[in-house]
C-alpha cells in the first residue's frame, strides 16, 4: 500500500511540473496588458512602462519564469494586481469555502444517488427504476444557476425556510476560530452549536444545487454497475448457496459494484470543484471559483496561476485518494502495486 502511494506521488511530479509551465505560458498568452489595466484608463505611456518594469514584465519570458519558480519554491504565489493581496493567503482563505460546499454537495449526492441506483438495479422496470431515470435526467439537464435560483426563490423568497443567499454566514455571526477552514467542523471544535446551525443553514441550498447536478452520473453508474454485477456468476453462486438477500446484495454485489462508482465519484468531485463558479455567484459564496474568474477577466496573472496550480495539486491528491480507496476495495489492485 505504501509502495502504491509512493509510486503515485512520484508519478505526479512530472504532471505538476507540466502544469507550472503550461499555466505560466497560458497566462502570458492571455489577451490584455496587465500593466495598462493596472495603471488605469488615464495613465500615460510612461506610467504604464514604469508599472511594467515594476512588475518585471519587461524581462524576457525565461527570466520571468525562473523568477516565478523561485517565488513558488518559497510558497510565494505573488500578489493580485487588483487587490494587492498575496494570492497564497487569498487561496488559503477561499479554498476551504469551495471545498466545504463541494464536499457537502457530493455527500448529499452520494447519499441519494447510490441507494437510488442500487434500488433501481435490484428492481428493474419498477417504479423506483423509472424514478431514478427521471431524477437523474432532470438533474443533469437543468443548468446549475437555474436550479440554484429556483431553490432560492422557493425556499428563501416564498417559504422563508432558508436564510438569504449571501455567503457563508449570516451577518450576525462571526466565523469560528480557523482550524480546518470548514465552518461546520470549526464550529463543532469551538463547541458553538448555534454557529454550526447557522453555517449549515447557509450551506444547504448551494450544496443541494450541486447535489442535483451531480446525481445523474453517480446514480446511473451505480445502477449500471449493480446490474452487471447482479448478473455475474459469483452472485449466482451466492444465491445458490442460500445466502440472504441482504448478504447477496450488500456483501457480494454492492462491494464489487462500487469500483466503477468510486472512479466516477473522483471525476465528479474534481469537476464540481472547478465548475461551481456559477453556484458561488448565485449564492455570493466567497469561493475559489469566483476568485479565479474575476482574476481572469482582469488579466491578473498571479491569481489565475495560483488557482490552476491549486486545482492541479487537488486533482493529484484526489486521484491518490481514489487509488487508495480502490486498493482497499479490490485486493487485485494491491498486488499490482
Amino acid at each position: 500500500m505504501l509502495r502504491l502511494i509512493a509510486k503515485r506521488l512520484l508519478l505526479a511530479i512530472p504532471s505538476l511540473i507540466g502544469v507550472v509551465i503550461v499555466t505560466f505560458l497560458l497566462t502570458r498568452a492571455l489577451p490584455g496588458d496587465p500593466a495598462a489595466y493596472f495603471a488605469g484608463p488615464a495613465a500615460t505611456k510612461v506610467a504604464i512602462e514604469q508599472i511594467r518594469q515594476k512588475l518585471g514584465l519587461d524581462q524576457s519570458l525565461p527570466v520571468q519564469f525562473v523568477q516565478y519558480v523561485r517565488d513558488l519554491a518559497r510558497g510565494d504565489m505573488g500578489s493580485a494586481l487588483t487587490t494587492g493581496q498575496p494570492v497564497a493567503a487569498e487561496i488559503r482563505a477561499r479554498l476551504p469555502a469551495s471545498a466545504e460546499l463541494t464536499l457537502l454537495g457530493l455527500i448529499f449526492s452520494v447519499a441519494i444517488a447510490v441507494p437510488l441506483g442500487v434500488l433501481a438495479a435490484t428492481r428493474p422496470n419498477s417504479l423506483i427504476d423509472h424514478a431514478c431515470r427521471v431524477v437523474s435526467t432532470a438533474g443533469v439537464s437543468l443548468p446549475v444557476f437555474f436550479t440554484g435560483l429556483i431553490l432560492v426563490y422557493v425556499f428563501y423568497y416564498q417559504l422563508g425556510w432558508a436564510p438569504a443567499p449571501l455567503g457563508r454566514l449570516d451577518v450576525f455571526f462571526s466565523p469560528p476560530p480557523q482550524v480546518t477552514g470548514f465552518y461546520l467542523i470549526d464550529s463543532v471544535i469551538a463547541g458553538d452549536w448555534g454557529l454550526f446551525r447557522a453555517s449549515l443553514n447557509q450551506l444547504i441550498l448551494p450544496a443541494l444545487t450541486l447535489c442535483i447536478f451531480s446525481l445523474a452520473p453517480i446514480a446511473r453508474m451505480t445502477r449500471a454497475s449493480m446490474l452487471a454485477v447482479l448478473a455475474s456468476d459469483f452472485v449466482r453462486t451466492a444465491r445458490a448457496s442460500g445466502l440472504s438477500p441482504f448478504t447477496v446484495i450488500y456483501t457480494y454485489a454492492f462491494r464489487n459494484a462500487m469500483l466503477p462508482v468510486v472512479t466516477t465519484l473522483g471525476m465528479v468531485f474534481s469537476f464540481l470543484l472547478g465548475a461551481n463558479v456559477l453556484v458561488e455567484k448565485v449564492f455570493a459564496w466567497p469561493g475559489i471559483g469566483s476568485y479565479a474568474v474575476e482574476a481572469l477577466i482582469a488579466s491578473d496573472f498571479a491569481p489565475v496561476q495560483g488557482f490552476v496550480l491549486t486545482m492541479a495539486v487537488m486533482y493529484v491528491a484526489l486521484n491518490l485518494l481514489i487509488d487508495i480507496l480502490y486498493g482497499l476495495i479490490d485486493p487485485r489492485v494491491r498486488i499490482e502495486a
Binding site: 459469483f234 453462486t237 457480494y252 462491494r255 464489487n256 485486493p331
Partner: peptide
C-alpha cells in the same frame, strides 16, 4: 474463478 466473489 468467476463463480467466486473476486474481492472476498
Amino acid at each position: 474463478r468467476a463463480a467466486l466473489n473476486p474481492i472476498r
